[in-house]
Design a protein around this nucleic acid. Sequence first.
DNA 1: TTGAAAGCGCTAACAC
DNA 2: GTGTTAGCGCTTTCAA
Lengths: 350, 350
Amino acid sequence: MPDEVPPFTPARARHAGIVDVARLAGVSPGTVSRSLRGHQNVSPITRQKVLDAARELSYRASPQASGLASGRTRTIGVVVPYVTRWFYANAVAGAYDVLSAAGYDVLLYHLGSAEARDRFFERMPLTRRVDAVLTLTLGLTEEHVRALRALDIPLVTIGRRLPGVACVRIDDAEAVRHAVYHLVHQGHREIAMISGEKDEDGFDFRTWHDRREGFVDALASAGIEAQPELMPSSRGGIEGGAQAMAQLLSGPRLPTAVLAEYDELAIGALRTLRRAGVAVPGRVSVVGIDDHEMAAVVDLTTVAQPVSDQGAAAGRMLLDILAGAAPDPVDVVVPTRLVIRGTTAAPRRG
Amino acid sequence: MPDEVPPFTPARARHAGIVDVARLAGVSPGTVSRSLRGHQNVSPITRQKVLDAARELSYRASPQASGLASGRTRTIGVVVPYVTRWFYANAVAGAYDVLSAAGYDVLLYHLGSAEARDRFFERMPLTRRVDAVLTLTLGLTEEHVRALRALDIPLVTIGRRLPGVACVRIDDAEAVRHAVYHLVHQGHREIAMISGEKDEDGFDFRTWHDRREGFVDALASAGIEAQPELMPSSRGGIEGGAQAMAQLLSGPRLPTAVLAEYDELAIGALRTLRRAGVAVPGRVSVVGIDDHEMAAVVDLTTVAQPVSDQGAAAGRMLLDILAGAAPDPVDVVVPTRLVIRGTTAAPRRG
DNA sequence: TTGAAAGCGCTAACAC
DNA sequence: GTGTTAGCGCTTTCAA
């Protein structure tokens, strides 16, 4: 696959090289290398000379060269479906802090569109470019996952369990249960659930399935049978939620409560309800999952999950693995909790 | 500065090297290199043989090695203050699409906290690691900017004009004018403006100044004198907006309209107003700037700016510069437009 | 504890 | 057109 190479001439400033430092410090390049990376066998005085020289020349080792020689890149690849969504942005930020504090750089891969994803898996730009990979709730196909593992470097996921891969996530069924039980305890029996697109942009998000299944199960254990017509699936995001709610409104009879697969959908649903003049929680109660920063603003009852914490935990797992302290692939499940706000209440007597 | 190196042993799978491909194709490594990068002087038949061999071995050139040899990294550094905020996340996504389509990888630097920023400027991890840098509205000090330029590689900014640096941005004064004129035309004379923190996390955001100055000027040209007590500054984000609004509420007299430096502040302000039982737009009108995706949800009148477009434009500029088509540092100003929704109306007669 | 020297895997300049 | 040959700037044995 021929690649068009732009004719950029790297006429950059000459950075000081390791030999420059070596000369200035009066030692050999090897000693400079050892000193700078804190190796054992360097006398304190020598090390100090080297440090001084390096500082004087504002020396920084070329990552390319040191990577080539050592086989380590000091870079982590972070792969996300959508950077612009609240969940992913916050998870990335959480992981970033941990990784950057440990001296790692972060290469971001945003697969948001079908083209971007195809390009990614075709080029596999991670190959020989990162020490480890962190993927966020990717709804990848078998083949994609295989490609990722073929890189043969440490892999950690957030939000999705993959066989043999360390993972940080919430228990989706439990999250849904928190919400459903809350509604049931308030007396609701007619409960709908709205979800995003099944295979949004071609991603096979597990959460979609897990939360819907969890919903059916939670209802069942409350003695309620789920009704397919009360489980519409629309596009994702706020607009999707608005659509799904509109669909429910146009149905034969309106449920007394609606659970949204995630907060952005719930927020869209609230918009539709407001515009339609349906009282919340008077006529319909609404619950979301996430505790998006906007949930508090619109007073949405929701099941909170710690997002940047999950990113940080995943980052730490990666560092542990890279440090050789690699336990068996762990599955860290962080707790969720119900946050009761103003969009839920007991159903009207009728 | 000695660096602690984790003892990770790169016991990875052996990737095929260029010599493997050369051997399989029955040519020399040099020819493989030329063929794969679409150079001129390669016969079609030879190129095909190489391509086949490369595919068969799933060969991908080591970025480290080719970077070291060529002086190019095929990587762009993107530096943002806060990835989790709507504006930055969308701008990054816009730039990412353009850059990744052109075959560049994106190294993300998130300076969100003071520590992260200090670490960044201390280590200067961009050194010899990227071909160009894109910075987003960073409120950097003189010294920081100098450090960035010392990298001596192409630099493009979004949202902030730096002398001699290409830039994509909106005209902040104009954006504010759109909002102020709208309010004035509706008959408002008592107009407040709420802003985020002046030097949030130590960032000296120019927007903060430009929008406030623009506000004073716009009022002046409408024959209204700005009143300092009607220009409170709080923390940033939704919470900050809520606080600033609370401050206004506790003042001697409530203005009839409030302009927020950006939508997240406006949204926070709306929350405070709702909780305080102040009618919007009955008693107070509210306008924001951005057209955040939540603006439509809360029915906020705002001045829209194209965000991912700015990211994309900046990405394209970077590519042009790298391609040698480097015009003088351009200053691209994208247009803003008023989006009238439900939070503004004529003031009550009184 | 330190220096010398051999790569790491590729690109590019120069022959042929 | 294609092969050969120096490096690119480090790290890392291996000796000393």
